[in-house]
Simulated assay, not measured.
Amino acid sequence: MQVSRPERLANYAILMAFAVFALYPLIGIVTAALQPDTQAPGGLPNFQQAWDIGRFGSYLRASALVSIFVVGVSTVLSILAGFAFGTMRFRGSEALFYVMLVGIMVPAEAIVVPLFFDLRAIGLTDTFWALALPQVAQSVAFGTFWLRAFFRSSNRSIIEAARLDGASTWRILWQVLVPLARPALVTLVVLTFMWTWNEFLIPLVMVPTNESLRTAPLGLGFFSGQYTQGFALLAAGAVIVALPVVVLYLFLQRHFIAGMLEGAVRD
């Protein structure tokens, strides 16, 4: 089916309009961050002032540690669970899979308060584990759903050929299927990292007094509350917090888009 030139131009115009609509707020924030802030003390650039005043170095380090842990653990667990639900049949597998999907359907706002009291009862609040474990649970729920679809649609002839060659189930998973799932895994890693990095509610509730465990979005919230006179500094702080996610996406965008398209084709 050939697309006429006017139709193609109309499609480009619509896409450009959506791109401008999506990028305009981002460009506005970056432009504001580069403007001189007359309300801020000293003559340092906005980014350096925001970094020093807002203590973003400590917040970014905490966010990086939590994000790396959550992404690593949840990805491994999602691979194992997705492989089990996608390729194996055992009693109660369907019911157990739908129970895991509750982690996707139930919002964090509905469970964060009882979860706080549960973690406080066992002495985990104001600790790294109070930040990481709830987000691992949420990420594994989505990761299992995501990778189950891939493993269910994987080429059975490859698996059977590996079995005929004497490969064990463990070897089939890690040496045959996981390399083939690289686009899906990259997409999962980017999404999990983005969700974990941008999480605000769980750090706010789970670490009420431990300032060293404040993550970057939470630190930006406190920064905006303590320093409200200079909008340019707030914009600079927002750029600093968002930059790691943007860099990761730009670095992995080709694999991310391939994984999303592959998932759409499989669906």
Rank of each mutant, 00 (worst) to 15 (best):
V3S: 14
S4R: 05
P6D: 13
E7K: 06
M16E: 05
L23S: 05
L34C: 11
P36D: 03
T38I: 14
T38Q: 09
P45H: 06
F47S: 11
G57N: 07
R61S: 13
V70E: 13
V71K: 07
S74D: 12
T75H: 03
V76A: 06
V76F: 02
L77G: 04
G82C: 13
T87Y: 07
R91L: 15
E94L: 12
F97K: 06
F97G: 10
V99A: 15
L101Y: 00
V102P: 00
G103C: 15
P107D: 03
P114T: 01
L115Q: 12
F116S: 07
R120W: 04
L124D: 06
T125D: 02
F128L: 07
L131T: 05
V140M: 03
A141P: 08
F142N: 04
F150R: 05
F151R: 05
N155M: 07
R156Y: 06
D165N: 11
A167G: 13
L173T: 04
W174L: 12
V176T: 07
V178P: 00
V189Y: 01
V189P: 01
L191Q: 07
T192F: 08
F193D: 08
W195N: 13
V205H: 04
M206G: 09
P208V: 14
T209D: 11
S212V: 09
L213P: 00
L218K: 03
L220W: 02
G230W: 02
F231M: 08
A232C: 15
L233R: 09
L233T: 11
A236I: 04
Y249N: 14
L250S: 13
L250I: 11
L252E: 09
L252Y: 08
L252Q: 14
Q253F: 05
R254T: 11
H255G: 12
G259F: 04
G263K: 04
A264D: 00
